[in-house]
Simulated assay, not measured.
Amino acid sequence: MDASILIQVVLLIVGFVFLIKGSDLFVDGASSIASLLKVPTIIVGLTIVALGTSAPEAAVSITSSLTGSNAMAVSNVIGSNMFNLLMVIGVSALLSELLMEKEVLNRDLPFLVGITLLFAAFIFISGEISSIEGIILLIIMIAYMFFLIRTTMKSGATQVEKPKLSAAKSIIYIIIGLAGIVLGGDLVVNSASDIAIAFGMSETLVGLTIVAIGTSLPEFVTSITALKKGENQLVIGNVIGSNIFNILFVLGASSAISAIPIDSSMLFDVILMVIVTIICFIFGKTQDKYDKKEGVILILLFVFYMGFAIWRNYFPF
């Protein structure tokens, strides 16, 4: 391997480390600040933690949008959502049966299907995600979070977690975490673009594969950890919540900064993401769970999709 390419690969890995560790520090610091301010634990989970796990995708997509790498901004979200639905749920279901919580099944999963269809409609109507449509996605996100918080508060879930850090240390964690996220996003976008050029890969392919999988590692690790602790229901909530924030927050913020035109070659990926989301909804609705058989189907779909994405890059049709 050429020395310059090797350097870019190392920088890409370093970028992922900065992204993941930065989001961890940010979540820890922000959660402790919230606890010091007596914010209920469940609200922290619904807001700070949810946004924190989507921080890597947000950093990459927003950086891509600012630098004009529009293909990577969108393909990162599509690839990340596909990885979450097919691999995170698939592998988790293969390891242990995943039961569906009533709220996730009847509220969050249908909502994910709805906003995925809305995202697809934006693209097929205008061929882009305009700044106005990005603002609409952000407004929907704020409304969704407000609804979750209001519903949770009405249920009486007001337990406040004991702060793990002092106020000063929390602020330091937040600052270092944000710096890591920003620096990591910049490293990932720049090094991934250079690798794509060196190997004749399109930005779309890099975004759908290397970058998407790398930025989805927090969700994957969180889900496997939850399985080991016997908290199987957290896996579904983690994946669905992450995908919702990827569309509403990541794409919303990226396109609000600058309209993102969508290349016609990505229309298949958008359609497939819609189909996969609906399949996961049907799997969950029919049995209120994901079992090993469905896990195998989801993993095979991901393998097929990755193979097709690579083949399409070198043998376009």
Rank of each mutant, 00 (worst) to 15 (best):
Q159K: 08
S64K: 15
M100G: 02
I299R: 09
I42S: 04
A212F: 05
V270N: 08
A167T: 06
R150T: 07
G295I: 02
V270T: 15
T277I: 04
S254C: 09
I247K: 11
Q159F: 08
I78S: 00
N106I: 12
A143V: 12
S155P: 04
N238H: 00
S170L: 03
Y290V: 09
K228H: 10
G230R: 02
N238S: 07
S193Q: 11
V91A: 10
I260P: 03
M87W: 07
D186M: 14
A198I: 08
R312D: 15
I278Q: 00
K21M: 05
P110T: 08
V104C: 02
K229Q: 10
I299D: 02
I260D: 05
P218V: 00
I43W: 04
S54N: 10
K228N: 11
V221A: 14
A55T: 11
I20W: 15
A192S: 15
T204I: 15
I125M: 09
Y314G: 03
F16W: 08
L36D: 07
T277H: 06
S92G: 05
I139W: 04
T225A: 13
F317Y: 10
V91W: 03
T63E: 04
V296K: 08
I244C: 10
Q233C: 03
N84M: 10
P316T: 03
R150L: 01
L37W: 15
G52S: 03
K228E: 13
T53S: 14
I140L: 14
C280T: 07
V77E: 11
V27Y: 02
S130G: 13
D28G: 05
I139P: 05
I176G: 01
I175G: 01
A3R: 11
A58M: 14
P261N: 12
I115N: 06
M87A: 14
S242F: 03
I175F: 06
A167Q: 08
G230P: 00
S255K: 13
F249L: 12
S155M: 14
S258Q: 15
I78M: 01
L165Q: 07
S202N: 05
G184Q: 09
F220M: 14
P218F: 02
S65V: 01
G252D: 09
G252W: 01
S126V: 05
A198Q: 09
G230V: 09
M141F: 13
D2I: 00
S92I: 02
V274T: 09
V14E: 07
T286H: 03
T209H: 00
I247L: 04
G156M: 07
V206I: 15
M72T: 06
M153D: 04
V211T: 02
I172Y: 07
G52A: 13
L109F: 10
V17F: 13
I129G: 11
T152S: 12
I224L: 15
I174W: 05
D288H: 14
L148A: 11
I224F: 15
S126K: 13
T209G: 04
I139R: 00
G79W: 03
Y314Q: 12
A30V: 06
M145C: 02
L37D: 12
L51H: 07
M141P: 00
K162Q: 06
S126Q: 14
D263K: 06
F122H: 03
S193Y: 06
K169E: 01
F302A: 05
S155W: 00
S126M: 04
G241W: 07
A120K: 06
S191L: 11
V9A: 12
I171G: 05
D194I: 13
L227P: 10
D291E: 13
G230S: 04
K21T: 09
I89Q: 04
